[in-house]
Simulated assay, not measured.
Amino acid sequence: MNENEVFPVDNEDDDVVVTLNLDDGSEVTCEILTIFDIGEQDYIVLLPLDENGEENPDGEVYIYRYFEDETGAPSLDNIESDEEYAAVSAKFDELYGESLDEE
């Protein structure tokens, strides 16, 4: 994913869905599960969908740093350090792990 790349949002659907343009030129459609913060930094958790718009069977999620510019346009950035990723993953599991297991 390119740093600060804006993604389109499909407002016609009940779930908020975005399309990510990956570095290799491919696209993947994802459902936004949640946006949460740790300290001053926001993070977004995306659930990749298959070609039929269904959740991926192994429950894989993508987690990125999340920003909005002065106009409110969203952008994502990769989490670079293992320590930051571990902290964000733990927070996501703490906040949403149980609700995901119940589905």
Rank of each mutant, 00 (worst) to 15 (best):
E3A: 08
E3F: 10
E3M: 06
E5V: 07
V6Q: 11
V6E: 12
V6I: 09
V6F: 07
F7Q: 02
P8N: 06
V9G: 01
D10T: 09
D10M: 04
D10H: 12
D13N: 14
D15H: 14
D15I: 03
V16N: 10
V16C: 11
V16H: 09
V18A: 07
T19V: 14
T19N: 09
T19F: 07
L20K: 09
N21E: 15
L22T: 05
L22P: 02
D23Y: 08
D23T: 09
D23G: 02
D24T: 02
D24N: 15
G25I: 06
S26Q: 08
E27I: 05
E27N: 10
V28K: 09
T29E: 08
T29H: 05
C30P: 04
C30H: 04
E31V: 05
E31A: 06
I32D: 02
L33M: 08
I35F: 01
I35G: 03
I35Q: 03
D37E: 15
I38Q: 12
G39C: 01
G39Y: 07
E40F: 09
E40D: 15
D42R: 14
Y43G: 05
V45S: 05
L46F: 03
L46S: 08
L47M: 08
P48N: 07
L49V: 05
D50Q: 03
D50E: 01
E51R: 05
G53C: 04
G53H: 05
E54Q: 12
E54R: 09
D58L: 10
G59N: 11
G59A: 10
E60L: 15
E60D: 15
E60C: 03
V61F: 08
Y62K: 11
Y62D: 14
I63H: 00
R65F: 00
E68Q: 14
D69P: 13
E70I: 10
E70S: 15
T71A: 13
T71W: 11
A73H: 06
A73K: 10
A73I: 11
P74Y: 06
P74N: 14
S75D: 01
L76Q: 02
L76A: 04
L76T: 14
D77K: 14
N78M: 13
N78V: 14
I79P: 00
E80L: 15
E80Q: 13
S81M: 07
S81G: 09
S81W: 08
D82F: 13
Y85G: 00
A86V: 03
A86D: 13
A86I: 02
A87Q: 12
A87T: 08
V88H: 02
S89W: 12
S89P: 00
A90W: 06
A90K: 10
A90P: 01
K91N: 07
F92M: 05
D93Q: 13
D93N: 14
E94K: 09
L95A: 02
Y96C: 09
G97V: 06
E98Y: 09
S99R: 08
S99F: 07
L100Q: 05
